[in-house]
């Protein structure tokens, strides 16, 4: 523990800006993955253990599209779209068969998908790691705010992620489809009784969740190593976010993800040897005091 360094950091605007922005980028990328996870759980009551696979495939697809087209924008869109389609197919052909069934069966299906796609990635892209590299448009010197360092690429990711979070919140709260999804999360039988096609609705939710995870993979790809199985670590962190935030709560996922990122950003200075343990301790504390998570009462 180095509380002196932490106090010194809080006293320095440069340190606060640098660590806060780095925390925000870590948290907001996690939010994009966790949002899909919590949305799927909120509406379908399915714990999608294969969600990290969407993230991994998104990153690899973006990598290949960038190589083929040299357009990072196209790569991001292609990854998100492909994973949305994959999400729909995953729900229709696999998950739909175990609705209301044994949770163990859902777990086994997800685990099988994880293993199959990890191996498929090895077959297609090879077992060794890849690096996408920074797109040319973002190969710029960092911005200095109050002496703190903020890379332009990360600033762009923070803005984009916050916009997506706002869009998601507004879309769910104020559009007809959003209200249907919210209603389906609370009482799917009633929604079906009102003549709404819940089969299509469930597929749509899975598509949206998959698309968000694919998008996160594509956005992270320029700075992270791509390797088979890379979705596993992000899945663990996403589960921590969704559990603390409250399974099914988008707002909870957003705030927890930001808190998680900031804890990592400043924890690495003040508690370098047990930053991760702090996060797990926070999760245990929340589960003890509020078993449904911080925002668990909100369904979506």
């Amino acid at each position: 523990m180095d509380l002196g360094a932490l106090v010194a950091c809080f006293a320095s605007p440069a340190c606060v800006v640098t660590q806060a922005s780095s925390g925000l980028i870590v948290g907001l990328l996690l939010f994009l993955v966790a949002a899909g996870l919590t949305l799927i759980f909120g509406v379908l009551k399915i714990v999608n253990f294969a969600h990290g696979t969407f993230y991994m495939l998104g990153a690899y697809i973006a990598y290949s599209v960038l190589q083929a087209t040299n357009s990072y924008g196209l790569a991001v869109l292609a990854a998100a779209a492909a994973m949305a389609v994959f999400g729909v197919a995953f729900e229709r052909f696999l998950i739909a068969r175990v609705y209301g069934g044994n949770v163990l069966m859902q777990l086994l299906i997800c685990y099988a998908v994880v293993l199959i796609f990890d191996d498929l990635v090895k077959l297609i892209w090879g077992a060794d790691f890849h690096a996408m590299g920074m797109p040319e448009a973002f190969q710029r010197a960092p911005i200095f705010i109050a002496g703190g360092v903020v890379p332009p690429f990360y600033a762009g990711l923070i803005v984009l992620s916050l916009c997506l979070a706002a869009l998601l919140g507004l879309g769910l709260g104020f559009t007809r489809m959003g209200k249907i999804i919210t209603a389906a999360a609370q009482n799917p039988q009633m929604v079906a009784a009102l003549g709404i096609n819940t089969t299509a609705l469930f597929a749509l939710v899975f598509g949206l969740g998959g698309g968000l995870a694919g998008l996160a993979g594509a956005l992270a790809a320029p700075v992270r190593s791509l390797s088979p199985g890379m979705g596993f670590s992000i899945l663990i962190e996403s589960f921590i976010i969704t559990v603390i935030g409250g399974m099914g709560s988008i707002a909870g996922a957003l705030l927890t993800a930001i808190g998680y990122g900031l804890l990592r950003g400043f924890g690495t200075i003040g508690f370098p040897l047990f930053t991760d343990e702090l996060i797990y301790a926070a999760m245990i504390l929340v589960l003890l005091l509020r078993p449904s998570g911080l925002f668990g009462r909100e369904i979506v």
Binding site: A14, C15, T18, S22, G23, I234, G265, T268
Partner: peptide
Amino acid sequence: TQAWPKLGQPDFTEVITKLIQ
């Protein structure tokens, strides 16, 4: 300073900023 990121950690951002600080 010394930093000890986890093996296979996907994101080193906070470690990098700590080193810069």
